[in-house]
Design a protein around this nucleic acid. Structure first.
Lengths: 215, 215
DNA sequence: GTCTATATTATGATAGAC
DNA sequence: GTCTATCATAATATAGAC
């Protein structure tokens, strides 16, 4: 039966095509995440992204229509990874002592910023325009509820003199990401990379000592 | 005496020309500071800068040869202003009680980041390359000694459990600048501008409560 | 689906009139 | 010194061969 055989072949072929499409899209997203996270949207060219992904420049508009859409796909990926990982940690630690839980949440957040500095760059690259508006509504606003569960533990011990809850979010994010946002400077001044495991641990400890009052 | 008259006329003319040159250069630096501070180096076009300054695009390469040099001039201006202002505050407060002094230094730093968000953008816009290298060696490294006088007061009360001194610099800068670095998001989420005087005061108070241990 | 080649636009820097 | 006009280049997106 020719039609059945053709249909089967087409199915097999479609699967393979879809797999290849998926792989190429993923390579482009990974490369875009790297470039956008390092240089921001405007300073990243589709050529450099395609080159990093190992495909032709025209593969980018083919798979994502515009540079803008690739940027959105990269944002989805990095914010999705963060929410997934943090959701897991939040669940796993739900029965821990408040202090120990806060410490491990802070440590996890610092490690994520160190391993994925792109996350913070996406949050701060542009100051206005359609991309920021989309990002805030789609991905950053939800972060606040995630951090609220962290913040509940952070300011409880302060009683009257706790830092402003609204501002804790910004201070925490800014402080956690700062060494990685200024990595070149950190390296030049301190003679070591802020991404080294030892430096990350020290940063997590410093964050705990700064944002959790002494026990 | 024709030559004397001509000389005098030329001198007067030179002064006027130099004054006009200076004004144009200053307008370009101010416009460049604004654009670079808002969008970063690559995303700022010489056309938009010139347009903001109210001069022709070609006035930029005429007065500064390259976009790069204008950027450096803008960096000189904003870092110079910061050092001048902070130097004054440091002197004026040298006889204050340590706690009160630390509080006023923190408040001053927060106000400066709020009034000049360009400063932090210059520190974080690019992650590598000749401009960052120049900026770190010329302007950011000196900031560390300024902050050291602040930090000496910050971590003294902690005794054993003080945050890492190296990391305090980054945490402090990151936390102080965060609301202004994420101003669009702050506005969308909190329904008010982080640049409002009331929000700046609250941020300064939150910074004090976070980075100075309860008295 | 991926490539090479190209159309189109925007950028930074230069030339020349005034 | 400032302007208009232009060059040269690099960017994104499209067309067409395979």
């Amino acid at each position: 039966m020719r039609s059945a055989a053709a249909s089967t072949a087409a199915d097999i072929n479609n699967v393979r095509v879809q797999e290849r499409t998926l792989r190429t899209r993923q390579k482009l997203i990974a490369a875009g995440l790297h470039e956008f996270g390092l240089n921001g949207f405007e300073a990243s060219s589709t050529r450099s992204i395609a080159s990093r992904a190992g495909v032709a420049q025209s593969a980018l508009p083919y798979h994502f229509t515009t540079k803008d859409e690739l940027w959105r796909a990269a944002a989805e990926k990095i914010f999705g990874e963060f929410l997934t990982r943090f959701g897991t940690i939040l669940e796993m630690s739900s029965d821990d002592e408040p202090r120990a839980r806060a410490e491990s949440l802070i440590t996890e957040a610092v490690c994520f910023f160190a391993q994925h500095p792109e996350l913070h760059r996406f949050m701060t690259d542009e100051t206005s325009g359609p991309r920021v508006e989309w990002l805030v509504e789609t991905h950053i606003r939800p972060l606040h509820s995630v951090f609220d569960s962290l913040i509940a533990d952070l300011d409880a011990p302060f009683d009257g003199a706790a830092p402003d809850r609204q501002h804790l979010f910004y201070m925490f994010v800014g402080a956690a990401a700062a060494p990685y946002e200024m990595a070149y400077e950190y390296n030049a001044v301190n003679g070591a990379s802020p991404f080294d495991a030892e430096a990350v641990n020290r940063h997590a400890q410093s964050m705990i000592r700064t944002f959790l009052p002494p026990a």
